[in-house]
């Protein structure tokens, strides 16, 4: 069995968790195994029924007063007990902030290592083989884990979703034995960013600006473009962030976030190696830059040589027209 940890937000299952569950189903199929899903802490009944469409044989929902708020310590403890009882061959996580926080803690509790932030999973001789970018994508490491279960986190936006199908998973609700006093740190408050923003790590489309944006006020132009497109977020190069033009949560690159959106726009970004490392696995890259020699054009699928302050308004008008058709 391959077990997938399911993350919810406001009671809804996160898309990246469904991607992980879909990939688990594909690989489990190759290995002749079943899949299972696990929800921890507060989650609605709706979540369990959403999950069953992705084919798990069982959905386990672990609850306990000690799990009412997220803590890596409490969640790892509850998951480890389930793993010991059900002996899955692998445990998958979405490589979100929570997945990256929790998966290593679970692995250590089980005495096994981890394949973090994987972009490819294969099966060879009955074993899972993971591929993951290192040096922010400057190299690709392919590895197997010698001890079971194989714990892995999967990069969001990389693995395709299965077509949802009506199916009935067995849903098991149970109390997890997590003593309150064992949890020595937990989330006490979640402060959402203003508006309905999508994080660059989860966005389908990223609209990034660099030094060529010339100042913080011009990032509003990128916000405008992002507002036109579905699941779009504004990104930035390190030099724009270091100049204080936009918050570091938007930084894409080796010392920021490594992203793989469907579409990446680079406005006024020359393409320093550490930026390219963080975004070159995007499916389609568009670069707009005044300098025809800018290295960003070497990785771009589509390039426009020109003044971004003239191109952005024209692009906005064209996009509006295209999207209304």
């Amino acid at each position: 069995m391959i077990l997938t940890f399911i993350e919810t937000r406001d009671g809804k299952v996160k898309k990246s968790s469904l991607e992980a569950l879909s990939e688990a189903k594909r690989r489990a199929g190759e290995m002749g195994l079943q899949t299972a899903a696990v929800l921890v802490g507060p989650a609605g009944d709706e979540a369990a029924s959403d999950l069953s469409k992705y084919g798990p044989a069982r959905v386990t929902h672990l609850e306990s007063p000690a799990l009412a708020a997220y803590s890596a310590q409490g969640f790892a403890r509850a998951l480890a007990d389930l793993v010991k009882e059900t002996s899955p061959q692998a445990v998958f996580f979405a490589g979100t902030a929570m997945g990256r926080d929790l998966a290593p803690r679970l692995a250590a509790r089980l005495g096994v290592s981890l394949a973090a932030d994987c972009t490819k999973v294969a099966v060879r001789d009955g074993r899972l083989v993971f591929t993951r970018p290192i040096y922010a994508g400057k190299a690709l490491l392919t590895l197997t884990l010698k001890s079971l279960p194989a714990v892995a986190s999967l990069r969001p936006n990389v693995f395709p979703l299965l077509e949802p199908e009506p199916s009935a998973a067995e849903v098991v609700r149970r109390e997890a034995a997590v003593p309150e006093e064992e949890v020595k740190g937990r989330v006490v408050e979640v402060v959402r960013e203003k508006g309905d923003t999508v994080d660059v790590a989860e966005a389908d489309i990223i609209i990034s600006g660099g030094r060529g944006m010339k100042g913080p006020e011009n990032f509003a132009l990128l916000q405008d473009l992002a507002a036109l497109l579905p699941r779009a977020a504004v990104g930035a190069s390190r030099s724009a962030v270091d100049s204080g033009w936009i918050g570091h949560a938007h930084q894409v690159g080796q010392t920021g976030k490594t992203v793989s959106p469907t579409l990446y726009f680079a406005f006024g970004i020359s393409g320093a190696i550490q930026h390219l490392a963080g975004m070159s696995s995007s499916k389609v890259i568009v670069a707009v830059n005044k300098d025809p020699e800018a290295p960003i054009f070497k990785v771009a699928d589509y390039g426009v040589v020109g003044d971004l302050f003239a191109v952005i308004p024209a692009l906005k008008a064209e996009l509006k027209k295209a999207l209304s058709e």
């Binding site: 890596a72 310590q73 790892a76 990256r100 926080d101 929790l102 998966a103 290593p104 803690r105 692995a107 250590a108 509790r109 981890l114 973090a116 932030d117 993951r132 970018p133 290192i134 040096y135 922010a136 080796q254 010392t255 490594t258």
Partner: peptide
């Protein structure tokens, strides 16, 4: 910025 695991702190905490 080498192995990019982001795992050693959480693992150390658990151990």
């Amino acid at each position: 910025v080498w192995a990019d695991n982001s795992a050693v702190p959480a693992m150390t905490a658990e151990l």
